[in-house]
């Protein structure tokens, strides 16, 4: 494609941050192309690239066998971080888990939100989102998802446990992802095409009111 990349073995022996920034710079075209494809938004791709540069300036990893792969993986993770932050913003703005009115049915008093750090509330909301999304899954997909992602079984082990074929497991997982994707998208996450949704102020609807476009 372009000029030969720096001697990766030499790069691997360099531990100062310069090494990784040099690797990023050497592959900037490919990394930005990846980020454009990953985010669907050239502006965001540029932002992530800048963010990545700054982080690589300060990171001090041990010896790295494949610096180019490291840089791509870091870029991928940065996009994930942004998606997760956007989800949390959306959950917060949507007033999920609305304050309970004083009453007899479920009398609870939650921790004072003014004192609780953002992360604590965000984690709580994420967990609730997951629980409700998972509760809506078809039984087979839910079971495969639990066995694979929560109990940590491999596809082969899930297949043995559920007494179905590996391709059956893969189909269940795909069904699970399809549902989870919709549940996450309905709370504002879904890439640049849905970025307008992210800008819309939360409607304040409760989580169970998420539209299901089956």
């Amino acid at each position: 494609m372009s000029a030969p990349s720096p001697d990766s073995a030499m790069m691997a022996r360099q531990s100062p941050p310069d090494g990784l920034c040099a690797v990023l710079f050497a592959h900037r075209g490919e990394v930005i192309r990846f980020l454009c494809a990953r985010t669907g938004d050239p502006g965001e791709a540029e932002d992530v690239y800048q963010d990545l540069w700054i982080r690589l300036l300060h990171v001090r990893p041990g010896p790295i066998g494949n610096p180019r792969a490291y840089v791509f993986r870091a870029a991928n993770n940065l996009v994930l971080d942004r998606r997760r932050a956007a989800l949390r913003n959306r959950l917060r703005d949507g007033h999920w888990l609305a304050e309970e009115a004083p009453g007899d049915r479920h009398p609870e008093e939650r921790a004072d939100p003014a004192i609780a750090p953002d992360d604590a509330l965000a984690l709580q909301q994420e967990l609730t989102l997951l629980r409700i999304a998972m509760a809506a899954l078809p039984a087979g997909a839910l079971r495969a998802l639990r066995l694979h992602r929560i109990d940590g079984l491999s596809h082969a082990e899930v297949a043995a446990t559920m007494q179905i074929s590996r391709s059956g497991v893969e189909k269940h997982m795909a069904v699970a992802m399809k549902h989870l994707r919709r549940a996450l998208a309905n709370c504002g996450v879904g890439g640049a095409a849905a970025s307008d949704d992210l800008e819309r102020p939360g409607s304040g609807e409760p989580l169970v009111g998420c539209k299901d476009e089956r």
Partner: peptide
């Protein structure tokens, strides 16, 4: 475009489930 959106959801749900694994 659908590929990128699908992968977005897979990566995000992966991360969420990993972090909330115990509670789930």
């Amino acid at each position: 475009r659908d590929h990128a959106d699908a992968y977005d959801a897979v990566a995000l749900s992966d991360a969420l489930m990993a972090d909330h694994r115990g509670a789930l």
